[in-house]
Design a protein around this nucleic acid. Structure first.
Lengths: 109, 109
DNA sequence: TTCTTATATTACTAGGTAGTTGTACTTACT
DNA sequence: AGTAAGTACAACTACCTAGTAATATAAGAA
């Protein structure tokens, strides 16, 4: 069992860092519907082809997505749906955080 | 309910990015035992005082930790233990990823 | 007041990274 | 062969950030 210790904090941080980029989150969300090509992903997210391709390499490297080549097109898909569970957790935390900040603002009035 | 859409992908990414740094993960792990001062955290993590303080500001800003001042010392503590659930998820994913890469290496031999 | 302690902040440097442009590569089609 | 489509990669720029050193701030002790 991997734990959050000195030795592997870097590897764990790398996985979090891969999710710490808006474009990569949008790519994962777009892939949620199912397998998708690079061109389609660029269209759905509004990003440039080269940039989308580069972000997909990061997600591939960290094992969040998998790739299947067919002719000239690359088909990407989510490998571990747990990533959306993580998004839900961080969304929940974000909601609490927004509530907390709203209360602080109200108290200042 | 907050969702992973175009409008709030940035806010969600910010929260992931805060966890995408080894030193900050070590700080959270050190805080797991309970409330702790900056000096103690610097000692436990082996980081410099200024650096630890700066990282704590990031965790504070994102709501992962809370602060209580007493005299000249600041006491930090975890606000939402859910953050460790996220670490477990990412550790699980990391384990799978390592297994996958090990298998790839074996296949090449 | 002066000194000490604990923390926060500022300024700086080195390294990293997102986005873009251009290009190379691969496959399929004619 | 040549051409077109889809993707990956290299080079570049602009920006961001981790770490450090020095300083500022604040509370207490002498």
């Amino acid at each position: 069992m991997i734990e959050l210790s000195d030795t592997n904090a870097s590897a764990i941080a790398e996985r979090f860092k891969a999710l710490g980029e808006p474009m990569r989150l949008l790519l994962l969300e777009a892939l949620r519907r199912g397998e998708c090509s690079v061109g389609e992903l660029a269209e759905r997210t509004g990003g440039g082809q080269a940039n989308v391709s580069k972000h997909l390499q990061v997600l591939l490297q960290q094992g969040y997505v998998d790739r299947r080549k067919e002719g000239t097109t690359s088909w990407y898909r989510i490998t571990d749906p747990q990533v959306f569970r993580m998004c839900e957790l961080v969304c929940g935390g974000l909601e609490q955080e927004l509530d907390r900040k709203r209360k602080l603002l109200r108290r200042r009035k």
